[in-house]
Computed example of a mutant assay.
Amino acid sequence: MQRQNFRCVHRLRVRWAEVDMQKIVFNAHYLMYIDTAMSDYWRALALPYEASMQTLGGEMYVKKATLEYHASAKLDDTLEVGLRCARIGNSSSLFEAGIFSGDKLLVSGELVYVFADPSTQTSTPVPPALRAMLEGFEAGADMVEVRTGDWNALGRDAGRLRTAVFVREQGIAADVEADALDASARHAVLYNRLGQPVATGRLLQQAPGVGRIGRMAVDRSVRGAQWGRVLLNTLIDAARVRGDQQVQLHAQCSAQGFYQRAGFAVAGEPYQEAGIAHVLMARDF
């Protein structure tokens, strides 16, 4: 078992609460590390877990978990937890896990999940859609479809995401979040393999040769899996194809680092918009 065998890897740092008197990780915490990595696995599939399981008509239940200890992790170690779906049966799925410090394998594990009806907790066959997603992910397939278009085509799904993020999560007034610019904007929506929208944004024409990206929203349950970057790249590419020489955005200050990593630079002083600190950022082509 090697680190490079895993497409999904969760990185963490060992905390004080997880070690014993010898500052070695208490053995039960390794299962917690693997369970945390499983959340990243669903994010890597672009699956909001609760909503996706409702769509699939079941739940994933752990039937069996085994660990084999090869070496110990210590306080402040940075660990990488790899997770992969190794086999899918009729109603069960076998996941293999590896916990690494650098290239050194510390713990290996296997978890058997059973897909079951949550009302009776009796096993049912793994849905074909879930089987295809698990097999596709492990084979290196893309997990999202990117669609671009106008508000008539994408507004329903884009609006649902924006309401969830900006109105319900951030407390922005609904009449401030929605504006007349949606009608002239080019919109992008990312859909997972269940057809669920998981991210959205829009591109405006700020001025001749200058695009403006805005209303970037990612479903909170799949954040941290690079779907925001996929969405941003889609809008940047659309601006470039249109012939823009620059693209701007009004970033929430809490997301400034995200945009800087995508090549944007601060182009103004921070200001308040809808009660949230923003800053103008720009990227030249």
Rank of each mutant, 00 (worst) to 15 (best):
E59C: 08
W16D: 10
H10N: 06
Y33V: 05
Q22G: 03
R43Q: 06
R84W: 05
Q54S: 09
T120F: 06
E18P: 12
N27W: 09
M32N: 14
D142R: 00
D103A: 10
Q121C: 05
A71Q: 07
S72W: 03
L67Q: 09
R15C: 10
S72A: 14
Y30V: 11
Y33P: 10
R87Q: 15
S72K: 01
H70L: 14
E138C: 09
A28T: 15
R84D: 10
M21H: 06
L106G: 01
A17C: 05
S93C: 15
R11L: 09
R11E: 08
E110Q: 11
R7S: 04
V25E: 13
I34G: 11
M143R: 11
A71Y: 02
L130D: 08
C85F: 04
R84H: 09
I99D: 03
K74M: 06
S123N: 02
Y61L: 15
S108R: 00
L94M: 06
M143F: 12
A44Y: 00
C8V: 15
L83D: 12
G109E: 06
L94E: 11
I99K: 04
L94D: 12
D117N: 15
T120S: 13
E80A: 11
G58I: 05
A28G: 14
V114Q: 01
A37Q: 09
T55E: 12
A37W: 06
